[in-house]
Simulated scan of single mutants.
Amino acid sequence: MREITVDDIAGDPAVPVVDVREQDEWDAGHVPHAIHIPMGEVVERLDEVPDGAAIICHSGGRSARVVQYLESQGRVAANVVGGTSAWIAAGHDVAR
């Protein structure tokens, strides 16, 4: 499984980011340029997930499962190590 760090995605805003957390988690704060597709909707919204996306959740567990699913579908994706928790801890901007 490919992995990417929060600093990698902060340093390159062209990397598409897909946040797979639930609505209340998203509302509490997210990566500013992220797309919100809750984990439970990924299968039905697969066409909305950009190829090469960095998949993020709270700490990396859900996003890892989503990346595994995407890879099984022939898609390219990377798991964001440490998730939104790492993003916030690194001091990056958070959108609400």
Rank of each mutant, 00 (worst) to 15 (best):
W87Y: 04
D24P: 07
Y69V: 01
G74T: 09
A34E: 06
L70C: 00
V67E: 02
S72V: 09
P50A: 07
S85C: 12
A10V: 02
L46Q: 12
E3H: 13
Q68G: 14
V43W: 12
D27H: 10
G82N: 08
G91D: 07
D27M: 11
R62L: 10
A10K: 14
G74L: 02
V20R: 07
H33L: 04
R45Y: 10
E41Y: 12
G82S: 09
E25W: 01
G74I: 07
V67D: 02
G83D: 05
A95Y: 03
D24T: 13
V15E: 06
W87P: 03
D24N: 12
R62G: 09
E71T: 10
V76T: 15
R2P: 14
D47S: 15
V18D: 05
R45G: 07
S59F: 13
M39W: 09
I4T: 15
T84P: 11
E25Q: 11
G83C: 10
G11D: 00
A28Y: 08
I88N: 10
I4N: 08
G40I: 11
S85E: 13
P32D: 08
V76Q: 14
G52Y: 03
P50K: 02
T5M: 05
S59I: 14
G29V: 07
A77P: 04
M39Q: 14
E22Q: 12
S72P: 01
D93F: 06
R2C: 06
T5E: 00
W26L: 08
W26P: 01
I35T: 15
I9P: 00
D12I: 10
R75C: 02
D47C: 09
G29H: 07
V67K: 05
V17R: 03
V67P: 00
E44G: 15
E3M: 13
H92E: 04
I37Y: 06
V80A: 02
A78W: 03
A53E: 05
Q23D: 15
G74W: 11
E3F: 12
D12R: 09
W87H: 04
R65D: 13
P50T: 03
A86M: 04
A53H: 01
G40D: 15
E44N: 14
Q23G: 12
R45T: 04
A86T: 02
A86W: 01
D93A: 15
S85H: 12
D8Q: 15
P16A: 01
R96E: 14
V43L: 14
V42E: 01
I88P: 08
V6C: 11
E22I: 07
G52V: 01
G60C: 04
T5I: 03
A78T: 00
T5V: 05
A95W: 03
P32R: 07
G60A: 08
R75W: 03
E48Y: 07
H33K: 08
H33Y: 11
Q68P: 08
V42M: 08
M1F: 10
H58I: 06
D8L: 03
H30N: 09
V20E: 00
A10F: 11
W26N: 05
V94T: 10
V43A: 15
H36W: 13
I55K: 01
S59C: 11
R2M: 12
A64T: 11
R96W: 10
